[in-house]
Computed example of a mutant assay.
Amino acid sequence: MQSLTFRLLEVFQSIVDHGSITAASSALSLSQPTVSLQLKKLSGIVGMPLFEQTYGQLKMTEAGEAVYQCAQEVLGSQSRLESQVHALKGVEIGTLKLAVVTTAKYVVPPILSPFCKQHPNIEVRFIVGNRADIIDRMRHNRDDVYIFSQPPQDDNLVCTPFLQNKLVVIAPPDYDGPDNCDLKALMDHKFLLREYGSGTRRAIQDYCDSKGLVFPNSMIIESNEAIRLAVTSGLGLAILSEHTLAHTPPDSVKVLKVKDFPLVNHWQAVTVKHRQISLAAQAFQKALLNVE
């Protein structure tokens, strides 16, 4: 096998991370023909196709998965070395790759803001996606730190809780039904719920299973913002994180007093055991633990 180069690995990693040759060429400030040529050269060195087309999208082959893992290890080691050398010189640099589930987009920016001011030379790459998207990124080891309210159960993960996540029952502002009650008393109302698989839905489902409760009249909405707006317009009741309501006018929804609520769990910072933690990621994890 001919020698791999940092540049070839960097181009390949960028294609995977950005999802297309076009997006990678823009991110790397290279022409599309140049990126395509680099990919062809790398495929020739490996001697096997690295991508296949699936419904018009690039998907890594098994050989591509192996090359991607190699790219992460090699380029990650190079980045850590650069960071450590600069740290020895008293200069802090590095890249923090951070991926969070959608609800956490209300939680992370207020933490990132002071972190970026304190560490101005650290480049932050901030990805927001649904639970399935973030789990997929984690399985491919694409990021340094992942933020979940309900991390997947996996012995290869290190989960560190850092901030309470409180789920409350909300109603339209003109709601005049039961209050100061238990959740069972509200079951005649329509509930607007997140899709199965979301962290919020999993927490609600676990609670309902423990109480033998079933929502007889529900609507699935795959967005916290859409649920909040639907509640405001009178479509039904919902159970959402307080963080989702943080920037909502106080009179747009009514928070009900329901027994056992708020349901309390914790946001968790998740890392993959076999991925070496960069200095930038270590600094961010320390910042998370200082959040109150």
Score class of each variant (00 low, 15 high):
4 L>P: 04
4 L>W: 12
5 T>Q: 10
8 L>T: 07
10 E>T: 11
11 V>S: 00
13 Q>N: 11
13 Q>I: 03
15 I>Y: 03
17 D>M: 13
23 A>R: 11
28 L>F: 09
29 S>E: 09
32 Q>E: 13
33 P>K: 05
34 T>I: 13
35 V>T: 07
36 S>Y: 10
37 L>S: 13
38 Q>Y: 15
39 L>Q: 10
39 L>T: 03
45 I>L: 12
48 M>E: 14
48 M>H: 12
48 M>F: 13
49 P>T: 05
50 L>H: 02
52 E>G: 09
54 T>A: 12
56 G>R: 08
56 G>N: 03
59 K>E: 14
60 M>L: 11
60 M>W: 05
61 T>A: 07
62 E>L: 13
65 E>H: 13
65 E>N: 13
67 V>N: 03
69 Q>K: 14
72 Q>L: 15
75 L>I: 05
76 G>E: 04
79 S>N: 14
83 S>K: 04
84 Q>T: 14
85 V>P: 00
90 G>L: 11
93 I>H: 04
95 T>Y: 05
96 L>K: 05
97 K>T: 02
100 V>A: 11
106 Y>A: 10
107 V>Q: 00
112 L>S: 10
114 P>H: 09
115 F>G: 05
118 Q>E: 15
123 E>W: 07
126 F>A: 08
128 V>E: 05
132 A>M: 14
133 D>M: 14
133 D>A: 15
134 I>G: 01
136 D>F: 12
137 R>I: 04
137 R>F: 11
138 M>S: 02
141 N>Q: 13
142 R>K: 13
145 V>I: 15
145 V>L: 07
148 F>R: 01
149 S>F: 01
150 Q>I: 11
150 Q>S: 14
153 Q>K: 15
154 D>H: 08
154 D>E: 07
158 V>Y: 08
159 C>N: 09
160 T>V: 02
161 P>I: 02
161 P>G: 02
166 K>G: 04
168 V>A: 06
168 V>K: 00
169 V>K: 01
171 A>W: 00
173 P>Q: 14
174 D>Q: 11
176 D>H: 09
177 G>C: 07
177 G>A: 07
178 P>T: 09
179 D>E: 09
181 C>I: 06
183 L>P: 01
185 A>R: 07
186 L>E: 02
187 M>H: 08
188 D>F: 08
189 H>R: 08
190 K>D: 08
190 K>M: 11
193 L>P: 02
194 R>L: 15
196 Y>N: 15
197 G>W: 00
198 S>D: 10
206 D>N: 14
207 Y>N: 02
211 K>N: 10
212 G>Q: 02
213 L>E: 04
215 F>E: 05
216 P>W: 04
220 I>C: 10
226 A>G: 03
229 L>I: 05
232 T>W: 04
232 T>D: 07
237 L>I: 05
238 A>C: 12
241 S>L: 04
241 S>T: 09
247 H>E: 13
248 T>S: 09
248 T>R: 06
249 P>W: 03
259 K>H: 11
262 P>W: 00
263 L>P: 03
266 H>V: 01
269 A>H: 02
270 V>K: 00
270 V>H: 01
270 V>S: 00
273 K>P: 08
275 R>A: 06
275 R>G: 04
280 A>E: 00
288 L>Q: 00
289 L>D: 08
291 V>L: 07
292 E>Y: 14
